[in-house]
Amino acid sequence: MLLIIPAHAVTPGEILPDPAMEARARAITGELRCLVCQNQSVDDSDASLARDLRVLVREKLKEGMSDAQVKEYVHARYGDFVLLRPPVKPGTILLWTAPLLALLAGGAAVWSAARRRRAPAETVELTGEERDRLAALGVSQGNDSGLADS
């Protein structure tokens, strides 16, 4: 049951008294990447830098900034990396296309391996000398395709 409750690192001292403003702060910090953890949002991270960013977001909201202005303020200082969903532009196009490229490359590899596996084996005629050697070893030659029983 505890696994379905989202883990937030917000401490009681950070929570704003106004529930609507606190909800706005949580929404904003949920979209910002922790620069220390790199795979967690600022809202979920226990890192001290994430705490500083949570406090900064709440301070900017108290100053009367809109959600977009707060995000832009943080983005201007920390760059595209601070956003969990960076903007699509030439500098971030690889971030957006990498999952699709990886999926396509994996599919191509599986298709290629399956195609090679289905290709019929090349048959080769045995020479007379090879037939004699097989006969000396006692191997039966069901056909001349080169696929003798051993």
Rank of each mutant, 00 (worst) to 15 (best):
C34R: 10
S48K: 08
P12R: 15
G79Q: 14
E31K: 14
R116K: 11
R118F: 10
L100F: 04
M1R: 06
L2W: 05
D67T: 04
E63A: 04
L94C: 00
K60L: 00
Q40H: 07
M1F: 06
W111D: 05
R116H: 10
K62E: 08
G79Y: 13
N143P: 12
L100S: 05
I15M: 09
V82R: 10
L49V: 03
L84T: 04
A7K: 08
R26F: 10
A47H: 13
L56T: 00
A148I: 13
A68I: 02
G79P: 10
S66N: 02
S112C: 10
W111I: 11
G79F: 09
D43G: 09
I4G: 05
W96C: 01
D18F: 08
L56I: 03
V124A: 07
E130V: 15
D67N: 03
W96K: 07
L35F: 10
L94R: 02
L35G: 14
A9N: 12
L126D: 03
L100I: 04
E122W: 12
S66I: 03
H8P: 02
S140E: 14
G146M: 12
Q69E: 03
R77A: 15
V82H: 09
K62Y: 04
V82Q: 11
L32Y: 02
L95Q: 07
W96S: 06
Y78P: 06
R33S: 05
R131W: 13
K89N: 11
T123I: 12
I15Y: 07
Q141A: 12
V36K: 12
S150T: 15
E63F: 02
L94H: 02
L147G: 10
P99Q: 01
P87D: 13
D67V: 02
R116T: 07
K60H: 03
E130H: 14
R133F: 12
D80F: 09
V42H: 07
P90R: 06
L126C: 04
I15F: 08
Q40E: 08
G64N: 00
D149M: 14
R26E: 12
Y73D: 15
G138C: 12
G142D: 15
G138R: 14
S112N: 10
L101Y: 01
A148K: 13
A105Q: 02
S45E: 14
L61V: 03
K71I: 12
